[in-house]
Design a binder for these strands. Structure first.
Lengths: 118, 118
DNA sequence: GCGTAGTACTACGAGCTGTCGAGCACGCAT
DNA sequence: ATGCGTGCTCGACAGCTCGTAGTACTACGC
């Protein structure tokens, strides 16, 4: 897939947190703490779209941007991608299991159990 | 942490596959298919050391390089890092669980069960 | 003393990312 | 119709990383 840059991630975070599609201007307002030129936001939104992280639809003259996938899907994909890097997936998975906290292990266990039932 | 480049990963792969620490020359020989200048290999080994992926110890005039961590640990760390990126870890974990193949789910389940026993 | 192996330092081009400016188009108020 | 504000597209540039390598210095064996 490919990792995201600093600003790219911030913008994805904003869009992931939103339930509706936003225009560049709206994103710019939400990221106001960084005082970016409007074109900067547009450029990044454009690049994210080109990379497939966002979809955009027309709204009058403006575009509205929305995430192409949920953050969870993205994170899960990153994790699977990391997993693909190893020769010994079993060892890596075991390591990983040891690395998650107790409550999270519980969540994983539950998710796996549900899988089993299907 | 940070991702590795193409060549960096190839070199890590070689060192991970090896049980003993190697010199730059030896790594170069093992990666011969790419016909790299010896200095190229040295530079990359140096950068990997600087980044903390390798340790090196003197062997006469030469350095011997060995991975600072196992590949599994690295992969597991990448996975945990990805997981840290999300707000809703539970959702991401569930997604992830759905993404692993059947046999791998089994491995995970086993690893988690062992955890529970401790 | 000289060649060889090995090191450290420096460099350069490509690609990615953050950051914008310039220039063009369209619609609304005057 | 005229101009301001909004929004777009293109192009640009600087900083950093990575692949790739040359050069210059050093130490050891013959």
């Amino acid at each position: 897939m490919k990792g995201l840059g600093e600003l790219e991630r911030s913008i994805m975070d904003i869009l992931w947190a939103q339930s509706t599609a936003l225009t560049a201007r709206e994103v710019g307002r939400l990221i106001a703490d960084r005082d970016l030129a409007p074109t900067t936001v547009m450029t990044v939104l454009d690049r994210l779209t080109r990379k497939g992280f966002l979809h955009r639809t027309r709204d009058g003259r403006a575009w509205r941007y929305a995430p192409a996938a949920t953050r969870d899907a993205y994170v899960a994909e990153l994790m699977l991608e990391a997993l693909d890097m190893t020769g010994d997936r079993s060892a890596a998975l075991t390591r990983f299991a040891q690395g998650v906290s107790g409550p999270e292990a519980e969540i994983l266990r539950r998710a796996l159990t549900e899988l089993e039932d299907e």
